[in-house]
Nucleic acid binder design. Structure first.
Lengths: 139, 139
DNA sequence: GTGTTTGCAAAGTGTTTGCAATTTA
DNA sequence: TAAATTGCAAACACTTTGCAAACAC
């Protein structure tokens, strides 16, 4: 999902998810996926897009993020009320959340050993397992 | 935390947490802690209080829930944007969250084996570890 | 051309706040 | 009586929606 440099690749990347490569989606995809994994909020991404000279409305950023999420290109993470984080690392992994700085950090899945999860009820399927290590600063 | 029947016990219970036993807090504490563990939202608790004939404002319900949370009488759980759950089970345990019904269910801590959590950075302390098993209904 | 996507502004949701009136100790 | 608590209404932060205009194919 990294190194999407040439625009043609970003276009194919979006097309592969059934999304029309519009100017806005192209710019947002580049910001999100062209480089290291990131944890962004809609507001942050919106600000970055404007800064990069791509006029996008906040509503469109939300639309795009949800479309990317639905397409499996990223993951929505909820750790506090009233704020969604979008994680461009869509492989299985977990998080540290600093409740003071409100910062999210990845924990590699392989590092954690998690067993003994209960059987889920008939007619249900596991959508995801999240481990969130919540930390605070010592005063 | 259960079977608080006599009001005198609820009063002591609140006093023990440094909270004045006001009519509203007494009623809310009874609804929350007198019986089985519960997962409630502020709105649900508010509705229940009104139904029980105790006129409380929603703002006061929020105040009380946060005070109870701060006092360690319950735990706030965030699993989706824009909605807080308050869990009257304040012992260490985890959750199943049904993304369709938006229902929370407890997983006993002893049932899960979780090791390999990373060291946290200098100057930080663990506030909590949450495991959330997200499930969906099959269609 | 047809269907999709955008952007704006407005509405929505759950939560928090300010402050005067009330209640508790 | 002094300090804490309540309730209202207004403010808040973030997100979603409706719909006409713009765009992709």
């Amino acid at each position: 999902m990294k190194k999407l440099r040439p625009y043609s690749q970003v276009i194919d990347f979006l097309r592969g998810s059934g999304l029309r490569p519009t100017r806005q989606r192209l710019a947002l995809a580049k910001l999100l996926f062209d480089g290291d994994h990131r944890h962004v909020t809609a507001e942050i991404l919106h600000a970055e897009a404007l800064e990069a000279g791509v006029p996008v409305s906040l509503a469109t950023v939300y639309n795009a993020l949800h479309q990317f999420n639905k397409a499996g290109l990223l993951r929505e993470i909820v750790v506090e009320v009233g704020r969604s984080y979008f994680d461009t690392n869509n492989s299985y992994h977990h998080h540290i959340f600093n409740e003071d700085s409100r910062e999210l950090t990845d924990i590699e899945a392989g590092q954690i050993n998690l067993t003994g999860l209960p059987e889920i009820a008939e007619g249900q399927k596991v959508s995801r397992v999240d481990v969130i290590l919540r930390v605070k600063n010592n005063n």
